[in-house]
Computed example of a mutant assay.
Amino acid sequence: MNWKTFIVATGALAILPLGIHAAQVNSEVNDIHETNNMRHFAQRIKHGKRGDRGQVMNKLLQQLDLTEEQSQSIETIRSRSQTTAEDLHEQMKAEHQEIKSLLTSDADTEQIRQQFQETQALHQQLGNNRFETMLEIREVLTSEQRAKIAELMEQHQGRKGGFFQ
């Protein structure tokens, strides 16, 4: 073995444990970050907060002079949607845990990809649920109320357009 090969091999052996250690530390940091995110998410669910989307929509709807019938219809729609969303979030949580287990196991790549696709499908269902809820609420509103909520959303978001026009 020549000296250059010896120096490169020795250098690689010296650096390899540092790389492994860095990967382990990074993995531990990611696990802590994910645990904190899940804990925060669980607390928000427990207290009925999935972000401020619902609160913003409540404030916007309160400014529309809804009839009692409209308010009841919208509440029914939102309640049904929230139940569906909670179920989907629970399924997604289980699917993410399964992916994590597969990644640390000897599972083959195709099995992990399939699990990821199932998670993505649930995420898509969640988005579809939000969109369908918006359309259902839109049907309850008059054209004047749609125009007003679009204007209010524009003011809130600071950009043109809205879903209810």
Score class of each variant (00 low, 15 high):
residue 1 M to C: 05
residue 4 K to D: 12
residue 4 K to Q: 15
residue 5 T to A: 14
residue 5 T to K: 09
residue 10 T to R: 06
residue 11 G to I: 10
residue 14 A to P: 00
residue 18 L to T: 01
residue 18 L to M: 04
residue 22 A to E: 02
residue 23 A to P: 04
residue 24 Q to R: 08
residue 25 V to K: 06
residue 26 N to K: 12
residue 26 N to F: 14
residue 27 S to V: 04
residue 34 E to M: 12
residue 35 T to Q: 15
residue 42 A to Y: 07
residue 42 A to I: 03
residue 44 R to H: 05
residue 45 I to Q: 09
residue 46 K to N: 10
residue 49 K to M: 03
residue 50 R to C: 05
residue 53 R to N: 03
residue 55 Q to G: 13
residue 55 Q to D: 09
residue 58 N to K: 07
residue 59 K to V: 00
residue 63 Q to F: 03
residue 65 D to Q: 13
residue 66 L to E: 02
residue 67 T to Y: 02
residue 67 T to S: 08
residue 72 Q to P: 02
residue 73 S to Y: 11
residue 75 E to W: 10
residue 75 E to I: 09
residue 79 S to V: 09
residue 81 S to W: 09
residue 82 Q to W: 04
residue 83 T to A: 14
residue 84 T to Y: 14
residue 89 H to W: 10
residue 92 M to Y: 03
residue 92 M to A: 08
residue 93 K to I: 15
residue 94 A to F: 12
residue 95 E to D: 07
residue 95 E to F: 01
residue 96 H to E: 09
residue 104 T to G: 13
residue 106 D to S: 07
residue 106 D to W: 05
residue 108 D to L: 08
residue 110 E to C: 04
residue 112 I to K: 11
residue 117 Q to P: 04
residue 117 Q to G: 13
residue 121 A to W: 04
residue 122 L to E: 02
residue 123 H to C: 00
residue 126 L to W: 03
residue 126 L to H: 11
residue 127 G to Y: 00
residue 129 N to T: 13
residue 130 R to C: 05
residue 131 F to N: 04
residue 132 E to R: 03
residue 132 E to H: 08
residue 133 T to K: 09
residue 133 T to M: 15
residue 136 E to T: 00
residue 137 I to M: 02
residue 137 I to V: 04
residue 137 I to H: 03
residue 139 E to L: 01
residue 139 E to K: 04
residue 143 S to R: 13
residue 149 I to N: 12
residue 149 I to W: 05
residue 150 A to S: 15
residue 151 E to M: 06
residue 152 L to D: 01
residue 155 Q to K: 15
residue 155 Q to S: 13
residue 156 H to A: 07
residue 156 H to D: 01
residue 158 G to N: 03
residue 159 R to A: 08
residue 160 K to W: 06
residue 164 F to Y: 13
